[in-house]
Design a protein around this nucleic acid. Sequence first.
DNA 1: AATGAATGAGAATTCATTCAT
DNA 2: AATGAATGAATTCTCATTCAT
Lengths: 192, 192, 192, 192
Amino acid sequence: MKKEIPPKKQAIFDATLTLVASHGLHNTPMSLIKKEAGVSAGAVYHYFESKEALINELYVTAKSEISDAVISELDLDAPYEESFFSLWINAYYYFASKPDALSFIEQCSNSPIITEQTKAQVVTTYQKSAEFFEQGIAQGNIKPLHIDVIHTLIYGSIVSLIKLAKDQPELVNDEVIEQAAIFCWDGLIQLN
Amino acid sequence: MKKEIPPKKQAIFDATLTLVASHGLHNTPMSLIKKEAGVSAGAVYHYFESKEALINELYVTAKSEISDAVISELDLDAPYEESFFSLWINAYYYFASKPDALSFIEQCSNSPIITEQTKAQVVTTYQKSAEFFEQGIAQGNIKPLHIDVIHTLIYGSIVSLIKLAKDQPELVNDEVIEQAAIFCWDGLIQLN
Amino acid sequence: MKKEIPPKKQAIFDATLTLVASHGLHNTPMSLIKKEAGVSAGAVYHYFESKEALINELYVTAKSEISDAVISELDLDAPYEESFFSLWINAYYYFASKPDALSFIEQCSNSPIITEQTKAQVVTTYQKSAEFFEQGIAQGNIKPLHIDVIHTLIYGSIVSLIKLAKDQPELVNDEVIEQAAIFCWDGLIQLN
Amino acid sequence: MKKEIPPKKQAIFDATLTLVASHGLHNTPMSLIKKEAGVSAGAVYHYFESKEALINELYVTAKSEISDAVISELDLDAPYEESFFSLWINAYYYFASKPDALSFIEQCSNSPIITEQTKAQVVTTYQKSAEFFEQGIAQGNIKPLHIDVIHTLIYGSIVSLIKLAKDQPELVNDEVIEQAAIFCWDGLIQLN
DNA sequence: AATGAATGAGAATTCATTCAT
DNA sequence: AATGAATGAATTCTCATTCAT
């Protein structure tokens, strides 16, 4: 099902993720990437047409890995509220466990380095979580907002909280994380 | 109260904001900045010690301009709910009216180019909105969450929605904007 | 008599000729040659020791192919003037029909990439046309110039005219071609 | 009248001419040029947008210098035949005295590195010698060929002879040079 | 304050060539 | 004979920064 990624290509991906997270997108030369990945300059250009192409391809890969991981835990048969909280909390901890990936993604997603074509590719990865929210709307569990709006608000909350946790780790304990999930749930559900 | 910014310095700020938004932080050389600003290379280094210093200083300036603008509209004497919505909507439209500034800020805030010292400076700009939320908690209007958590969730929602609007402008109409504000309000208030 | 050229070697020759003509000697990497020839990198180095060796060998081949073609039409028994014109015109049209070969040869012959050894090899191909001019001198048809001088002036005129035809195709019609041949004939013959 | 060429730009021109003549257009890296010229890498790119731009600009400069030099000696009031021989011989010795320039020009003019725009610029330098040949035709001294054809045949003969002289210096003595000039004159004049 | 030519280390990328298969 | 991934030195070009004027 999954594409087999050649070991060198994977090493380049890993090195790029780490280095962009620590040095910044603006400050990660190819020379550093090849050194960290332990490959030759030529090998990088064997697998990727250019630095931009590498970044774009890695962006797609990182985004879909995260999507896959978050969604794989999703239990559509549990009570809806329970499923929602488990999704939110799972996603939070998954993101939190991959700080480099998140840093990479955030740096890219705000930069013109990511092409429109790449963005279009990435959209498709939202499919399964979209279904979950559609189901919630259909069953009357949550407000009938546009799926992309829900997605944006939930994802935005999680990412914001992780950034806060990065700056103030002592503040964001399990209780706060739960409060943030509740914030989203309360924002989503129909009040009568 | 405010420092007078010399015209050339302002031109450099403006040029940098525009260029980082359109070319990316990773792809905006000083040579382009000086050209766009219409100043000499020497002038840039007269006003700023280095490129990093320029970016950091502009980051502080842009952040506080936004903060000032959003808060200046805040009416602490109106009914709380009304004030909240007016704050949220005002903030949304202000951000939306400054896409370059927002793009610049988002690119910087996820990059190691912004120093810890700069981040510390920026924190102080939250003061007045913090007071607004503290007042809401004290009066029992909203849940007693940590101020920084509230701030993060609200700011995160607004920024997320603006990014969505950038990608899908036709989707994010006034109704959607209001729905997002309601999402935040419902998430904040105490349910009984 | 002729060596059989293996198909892959021929494909490499053809690709090199085409590419050097269109991209320039300075801008024709081996990677492009192998792609255009449809062979592997290893195959190129099986047939040729190096890029320089490939260019030099192709130069010899191209030069002698042209020489052979031009001379094969030469009729030593016809009236001398008639033979001369038929030689000149034949040569012109043959060169004109192989623009890539001519472009390749001209680029090489002015570049230090062609070794002295290669140049020495190529000289031998002039043998038969040399005999034709020697005969003309012996019979008193043309001036007693050194064979190499005659050769140079005639060949130079033909090549110059072809270059002109490349830049201004509409100018160089059959009449002009004949005028150029007459120019050479009039320059060669003894005036009394 | 003439543009003042800044000393560094002139040094880059000189170095490029020398190096392309000795190493070949395909084998003259910028690093060698900057070293030979005694300037920094940045300086080269301050004066020229790219290597191609440098080559093209130098081509125009070299061509027009040669044109100017050859034509400056031209005496339109002398008897026509005498003027012609003096032009031819002058041109020959001028070219012969600038072997690097000639080698550079020949390598470029057969290579796609020279753009159509550059070729168009260069054509304008032929103006004055064109007038000389037009005058000869009008006065009935030479055959009524197209000016560009005459130009091509004469220039081609001179260049061919210089190439021969390069390969066989002992062969091309003053007598041979005169013979070649006579070849051209005899080819040009009307026979009755 | 201001200029802009100049620097040179370093960036992205290319390319002739090799070698394990 | 043939392949094509891999190499890494070399190449073109960039860019933050300086400094004489």
